[in-house]
């Protein structure tokens, strides 16, 4: 069970060894006398990367508090992108955009996911409420993480572009990328949850998820164009 306290632990710690990883091999320096020598690392040959904050953010486990914490963190990260978009006008635009960008992610989760759960349940898809909520939180977290990562680039374009159209275009591209990657995470998590279902149920679930994806794109776009002045809203 992943709790918020363990979440905070991972965030606070510096180099956290992966408990599931095999023991680290001794220094590979002697074995790499030539440039073509293969890298010495874990048993499967892949480098061992220590757990990161991002991995914890995109984790699926945990109870209600952990899920809520991840969703809240994703929302906050998405707001950073909003701040970047608001930098063109400054002042109140900071707040407007910071509220508007995460609103679409939250709305898709709050409005769309219950409907998706109901439809999938009608077809007896093996999806629990907790799993659906975890998928939603993961989607929000993923979208927020990508949007926050793109925020400096968006700020650069939004502030330094002479034309408002160019600023709007670049801001919209970032929104689309963040939103789509968040949606991808949400849908892929749901698909993982439905792997145990029979083939007929999986087929129906796939169709339902396609419909949900379309709904999410349209709803997100509607909200962003309504709330974000940079892309023509408010």
């Amino acid at each position: 069970m992943q709790t918020t306290s363990s979440l905070a632990d991972v965030w606070a710690a510096a180099p956290v060894p992966d408990p599931s990883a095999p023991p680290r091999a001794p220094s590979p320096e002697p074995a790499r006398a030539t440039p073509s020598a293969p890298p010495a690392s874990a048993d499967d040959g892949a480098p061992r990367v220590r757990p990161s904050r991002a991995r914890d953010l995109l984790d699926l486990g945990g109870g209600a508090r952990a899920i809520a914490a991840r969703a809240a963190l994703g929302t906050g990260l998405a707001a950073v992108y909003g701040l970047a978009l608001g930098a063109r006008e400054g002042g109140l635009a900071f707040l407007t955009h910071a509220a508007g960008v995460p609103a679409a992610l939250v709305a898709v989760a709050l409005v769309g996911l219950p409907s998706l759960y109901v439809v999938l349940s009608i077809f007896d898809a093996p999806l629990s409420i907790e799993r659906a909520a975890g998928a939603a939180a993961r989607g929000i977290a993923s979208g927020g993480l990508v949007l926050a990562g793109l925020a400096p680039l968006a700020a650069l374009y939004v502030v330094t572009s002479e034309s408002a159209h160019a600023a709007a275009l670049t801001g919209t591209l970032g929104l689309a990328l963040g939103g789509l990657l968040g949606l991808r995470h949400l849908v892929s998590t749901l698909r993982e949850a439905l792997e145990e279902a029979d083939s007929a149920t999986r087929l129906v679930a796939t169709l339902v998820q396609l419909g949900f994806g379309l709904f999410a794109v349209l709803l997100g776009w509607r909200i962003w164009t309504a709330l974000l002045p940079l892309v023509g809203g408010a």
Binding site: V49, A54, L145, V146, L147, G149, P152, L181
Partner: peptide, 15 residues
Amino acid sequence: PAFHAIAASLGRPWP
């Protein structure tokens, strides 16, 4: 930051 976020979102949650 963009590399970090994109890599994490596409299955490589590197520090």
